[in-house]
Design a binder for these strands. Sequence first.
DNA 1: TACTGATTCGAACGTTCGTTAGAATCAGTA
DNA 2: TACTGATTCTAACGAACGTTCGAATCAGTA
Lengths: 166, 166
Amino acid sequence: MRDLSRASGMSLAGLYYYFQSKERLLFLIQKHTFTTIVQRLRERLAGVTDPEQQIRIFILNHLEYFLANPASMKVLSHEADVLKNGFGSEIAAIKRQYYRICVGLLDDLKREQGLEFSTRIAVLSLFGMMNWIYTWHNPRVDADAGQIAQEMGDIFLRGVMNRGRR
Amino acid sequence: MRDLSRASGMSLAGLYYYFQSKERLLFLIQKHTFTTIVQRLRERLAGVTDPEQQIRIFILNHLEYFLANPASMKVLSHEADVLKNGFGSEIAAIKRQYYRICVGLLDDLKREQGLEFSTRIAVLSLFGMMNWIYTWHNPRVDADAGQIAQEMGDIFLRGVMNRGRR
DNA sequence: TACTGATTCGAACGTTCGTTAGAATCAGTA
DNA sequence: TACTGATTCTAACGAACGTTCGAATCAGTA
């Protein structure tokens, strides 16, 4: 809180005029972030019907937000499970929504292409690929969100499709 | 440190008889963990020459250790970058070694099969898939390391091979 | 037994943290 | 002008933290 006070220019006590507690402030930040990501995703998915294209949009949407707000996403990834009961479950609900959207897209793909694999493992592997980026992405060395989304999308989609070969 | 004191049954001050500081203790734990993982990997890779098989071994070795020590790996993933100068760089060196082994295996695979993709993105995507597991794996619901290694290996290897299709 | 070094501990130290009481200041209204 | 509610601040409180001091205990040796 003292860091936030210094960074925002408001006194330490002043922060508590606007936010009831440190935990509630973190809750509001998390809620705002995850709600925004889900909302943008819904806008971008509307009108697209090809499951493969939809999954590419999912990946791009996710990575664009992560790379546009690297410091925030680092904190949110670290503080994922620290919120107590009420706060925690509301955030968990939004995340579950987001997770379910991805499960839905993958199930569509499976149905359309007659594929056979564990949706759960696939979705969580994809989340891992995308979320881990906060530990390594260096904007001076690495490509931008669009290119990385392309490459991760290639790996993931080819990995999950093309079944039965070899 | 008070938690460790309680859990170990030794007094708080007693811990400081064996470990110079909290940071040095974390350093020793990290060093031991990562050294062990690298050493086991080297043993398992010896004698195997097929790059695809080697990558499968890499994944299995990594996941087995993670799922056998979930609490430790959660902490180590969280505290990845908190060690100061000297401590930090020694750990970073071990991790770089580990990273380079994986890069080597992938480069072998590319050479053998004439593939074309960014090794860096591929390796870091693979690490993401594997490391993220500490956030979701539930031993009462999810499969064991062997099966998950199989499924992640399928996704990753198919994703990175089979290039030029579609 | 007396002595020594290794081990373990209770009790504190100084610092940082989340939070709050209460006073000061400001903007708008009567 | 006097008053009110909203805003902002200084200064502290109590708890938790990493660490250390100095005393107690133990095992082995002479």
